[in-house]
């Protein structure tokens, strides 16, 4: 090996943190031991990077906005109604949908860890798992909403749901005005991830193309 190559080799390694090296080592060991199938690992990553995400939840919300009978089924028993649209399973075994109204705004947190409805929202964002959100969502919900640039009328009740068991919560945001007659597909473009956690509102028609 030439001096130049040697240097390059060292350089490569210095860029990898202790954690990166440890994960790499662990994956090699577990594969050699036959405990994991590398193809299964790739598929797990691909599933949550590409397939399962907030677009799923947006379809559920849009359908509930467009179809009153579906909305009633969703609010009565979330899990089977969401399964109708094709979403079910891990970290969404028992889903309850919560309807936002002018009188009541729902917001979801997990103060103990990071419980989140994976089949409809995908994996949680960093802020949802962070200490500031987990600590303040229950004691200062209006302050947390302000961090998101959301301000609600003083007489709107704020209802915080701490997901301490295996029930997962999906917020059904209020349908923006000026969207009468819109298709479900078009409505889904108005539904943001944060509006389904309760830290945001659905977009207004003017905010999408």
């Amino acid at each position: 090996m030439s001096g130049h190559d040697h240097h390059h080799h060292d350089h490569d390694h210095s860029e990898l943190s202790e954690t990166e090296l440890r994960v790499r080592a662990l994956e090699t060991v577990l594969t050699e031991k036959g405990y994991v199938d590398p193809k299964a690992l790739d598929l797990l990553i691909e599933t949550y990077e590409k397939k399962v995400g907030p677009r799923n939840g947006a379809r559920v919300v849009a359908k509930a906005w467009a179809d009153p009978a579906y909305r009633a089924r969703l609010l009565k028993d979330g899990t089977p109604a969401i399964a109708e649209v094709g979403y079910a399973g891990r970290q969404g075994e028992h889903i309850v949908a919560l309807e936002n109204t002018r009188q009541r705004h729902n917001m979801v947190v997990c103060t103990l860890c990071s419980c989140y409805p994976w089949p409809v929202l995908g994996l949680p964002p960093v802020w949802y798992k962070s200490a500031p959100y987990r600590s303040r969502a229950v004691s200062d919900p209006r302050g947390v909403l302000a961090d998101f640039g959301v301000s609600l009328p003083k007489d709107t009740e704020i209802r915080v749901w701490d997901s301490t068991a295996e029930i997962r919560y999906l917020v059904l945001p209020m349908r923006p005005t000026g969207t009468e007659g819109w298709s479900e597909e078009k409505l889904a473009d108005l539904v943001t991830r944060d509006s389904m956690i309760g830290t945001g509102l659905a977009k207004n028609p003017g905010e999408v193309k």
């Binding site: 577990l30 990077e49 994996l123 962070s130 303040r136």
Partner: peptide, 22 residues
Amino acid sequence: KVEPERDEPVFHAEWEKRAFAL
């Protein structure tokens, strides 16, 4: 404060993906 990240990726590093999948 809560600090939301704009256009946040699902994972922030390759090793996070592998740790999650493992």
